[in-house]
């Protein structure tokens, strides 16, 4: 891992978003720095859903926000449709944000309680037009309809009159109203009950098919991520461990961390064998002083001296499956090792 490298990136003309060598660091006083995201690279093709998974503190939310330049990453590049967002000035970025939207974890607190639903969803249009109110309402009504909220009923109601699941639908309508290229979903279903979670996941799938959306789906629940993602990237302590087509990764995890994550999931099956071996010893090290070499080595059952010394690079396992590990669980293509500085 936790490694660096760009072997897994696809040709630029096939992708909508390409993030390279992204670093996000937060100074915390006393000259100390939190290395939240360190040198990760990934890309997303148009119409694709990329799942970002990892434990809390692994930098998955920071990565999502860094794409939106909230806040600006320390270094690296974030290229959307050929434009490097890192090089845009404030006004340029403001205009570019119409192509990028976000859906947050807590649906109730992410809607202004004093505005009506009609106002909340129309707000982006207030800024970007059309400025004619009737035209705005037509667009808003279509969007509310699309997310399964009755526009006539909802227009003059306020967020507290809706359940958590309905508020999340309204947030989705607000994110869609400018027809963005890319939506970052930051744990959009974590705060919801399982029954409502299924509704929202189905809705996102439908909207994706209808509007050709490209999503970055951040979550800690691996089953949820598997359900919605075309590709999944596993993060650990600010680094990317493994990135792969979804079914391939869940069938053949190559990184020990991915395997441990998968073995930790409680399956709703009474016959599932409880495996005490699968326990990851210890906890996430501090991102103030990340371990040398592979960042996962302090908890990895396969770690040796090489892991402490050399940071693993992304290596190819199979078509669209890459792993950054010195001791991968499945054979990797040794010839493609590319050292990149």
């Amino acid at each position: 891992m936790a490694g660096s490298g760009r072997a897994h990136l696809r040709p630029e003309d096939e992708t909508l978003l390409r993030v390279e060598h992204l670093n996000v660091e937060f100074p915390v006083g006393g000259g100390r720095v939190v290395y939240a995201v360190s040198g990760i690279s990934f890309d997303i093709a148009k119409g694709e859903t990329l799942g970002l998974v990892g434990e809390s503190g692994c930098g998955k939310s920071t990565t999502g926000r860094a794409i939106l330049q909230l806040p600006r990453p320390t270094s690296g590049s974030v290229v959307l449709n050929g434009v490097d967002l890192m090089e845009l000035d404030g006004e340029g970025m403001r205009e570019k944000r119409t192509d990028l939207q976000m859906i947050f974890q807590d649906p109730i607190s992410s809607l202004n309680p004093r505005r009506t639903v009609g106002e909340v969803v129309a707000e982006p249009l207030q800024v970007w037009g059309p400025h004619d109110e009737d035209k705005q309402w037509d667009i808003v009504a279509d969007m509310l309809e699309a997310v399964g909220i009755d526009p006539g009923v909802a227009r003059y109601k306020r967020p507290h009159e809706f359940s958590g699941g309905q508020c999340q639908r309204i947030s989705i309508a607000r994110a869609l109203v400018l027809e963005p290229e890319l939506i970052i979903c930051d744990e959009p279903v974590s705060a919801l009950d399982v029954s409502v979670q299924a509704q929202i996941l189905n809705l996102l799938e439908d909207l994706k098919a209808e509007y050709g959306l490209t999503l970055v789906f951040i979550a800690h629940d691996l089953a949820v991520v598997k359900n919605i993602s075309d590709r999944v990237a596993v993060m650990y302590l600010g680094k990317m461990c493994e990135i792969s087509e979804t079914d391939e990764m869940y069938a053949n995890p190559a990184h020990p961390y991915t395997q441990l994550l998968l073995e930790s999931i409680p399956e709703p099956d009474p016959l599932a064998v409880l495996d005490d071996r699968a326990e990851i010893e210890g906890e996430l090290p501090s991102p103030l002083a990340p371990p040398s070499g592979c960042r996962f080595r302090t908890r990895c059952p396969y770690a040796d001296e090489t892991c402490a010394r050399v940071e693993p690079q992304m290596r190819r396992v199979s078509e669209d499956h890459y792993v950054a590990c010195h001791h991968p669980l499945v054979p990797v293509d040794e010839t493609e090792v590319q050292i990149d500085v």
């Binding site: 359940s163 699941g165 399982v194 029954s195 409502v196 979670q197 299924a198 509704q199 996941l201 189905n202 799938e205 629940d221 691996l222 089953a223 949820v224 598997k226 359900n227 919605i228 993602s229 075309d230 979804t246 079914d247 869940y250 998968l262 999931i265 399956e267 709703p268």
Partner: peptide, 24 residues
Amino acid sequence: EALLRSIPKIAQPKHSRLSAILGR
């Protein structure tokens, strides 16, 4: 039955349709 069916399961392939429980 509905509760169990609405949970996404690791064994299912990606993009499996979940059966949601409507209402609250």
